[in-house]
């Protein structure tokens, strides 16, 4: 495990912003930290980086206590938007960051190339578009070849093209074996990129598993005539109005059974719950 937390809690007064969160991130995976705005994602991440001290509970990042130099030097992060000096160029901002991380200047050029910012590296940060700022944030996070990349809402505020670029970048990093903890409230983003997901709602981790497991088994929707006869023929089917839901993956066998019994098959298609449906179910119930 690259990150583990055990009953991690942060309270401000009586209010638990993060409430006994126990999560784990495995090496080499893209872990989606999913939750609505204000659910406690950023506070959890800030605790993993030592910016916020937990009220109770424990956390380990790469076998170290959060916020220690040994842990931080192995982690690259972008939290709630990039924080850079507006009067410095992108390249100079990275040089400043590299000096703090003890990284040489050659790495600066390498990460600029990695995020496709070489052409704009001499421009002042304040003149960057939001997408460029986010990419510079990722470049800073990549300095020093971290073992873990923590990206908190990296597509926030980006236009669709910028979002697609950022997703491509994360995918490319994941393809190189980079472990990524990606916090987001965008379900599509998480569904597209992540291997495993932790869902947080009102400070509590309400689920943690693969996207597939979260969505549950595939159900086949069957529309047939007469539907009652089909219902009797297919064991374990459930009738929902004029359609059947069947926990069966072999659609061919199912259709043959119905056709041999002289039932007209009008429609057979997989019916899967979207992550969005699962998410609303979970966060609504939490």
């Amino acid at each position: 495990m690259i990150v583990t937390t055990e009953k991690l809690t942060k309270r401000y007064g009586d209010r638990a912003v993060v409430d006994e969160v126990s999560l784990s991130v495995r090496r080499g995976e893209v872990y989606g930290f999913l939750g609505p705005n204000g659910a406690g994602k950023t506070t959890t991440i800030r605790m993993l980086l030592g910016l916020v001290k937990p009220t109770s509970g424990t956390a380990e990042v790469l076998g170290e206590a959060p916020g220690t130099p040994r842990a931080l030097l192995k982690v690259g992060s972008l939290i709630e938007g990039p924080g850079f000096y507006p009067y410095l160029s992108g390249r100079d901002n990275l040089r400043v960051h590299a000096a703090r991380r003890g990284v040489t200047g050659t790495h600066v050029e390498a990460v600029l190339e990695q995020v496709d910012l070489v052409g704009a590296a001499s421009e002042k940060f304040r003149r960057y578009s939001l997408g460029m700022k986010q990419r510079l944030g990722v470049a800073a996070a990549l300095l020093g070849k971290p073992e873990l990349l923590i990206l908190d809402e990296p597509t926030n505020g980006l236009d669709p093209a910028g979002m697609a670029d950022m997703r491509d970048l994360v995918r490319a990093l994941a393809a190189q074996g980079q472990t990524v903890l990606l916090s987001s409230h965008l379900l599509g983003e998480v569904e597209e990129i992540c291997d495993r997901v932790g869902v947080i709602s009102r400070g509590r981790l309400v689920a943690e598993s693969t996207v597939e497991q979260l969505r549950g088994d595939t159900v086949l929707l069957v529309r047939a005539d007469p539907i009652e006869k089909a219902h009797v023929l297919i064991e374990g089917s459930t009738l929902h109005g004029d359609v059947l839901h069947v926990r069966e993956t072999d659609a061919g066998a199912l259709v043959r059974t119905l056709v041999h019994a002289d039932v007209d098959v009008q429609e057979v298609r997989p019916l899967r719950r979207t992550l969005e449906e699962v998410f609303f179910e979970m966060t609504g119930a939490a």
Partner: peptide, 14 residues
């Protein structure tokens, strides 16, 4: 305001 303390404190130094 610029968020640079956040960047500084997550860079590695104590």
């Amino acid at each position: 305001g610029w968020g640079t303390w956040k960047t500084t404190l997550t860079a590695g130094p104590r």
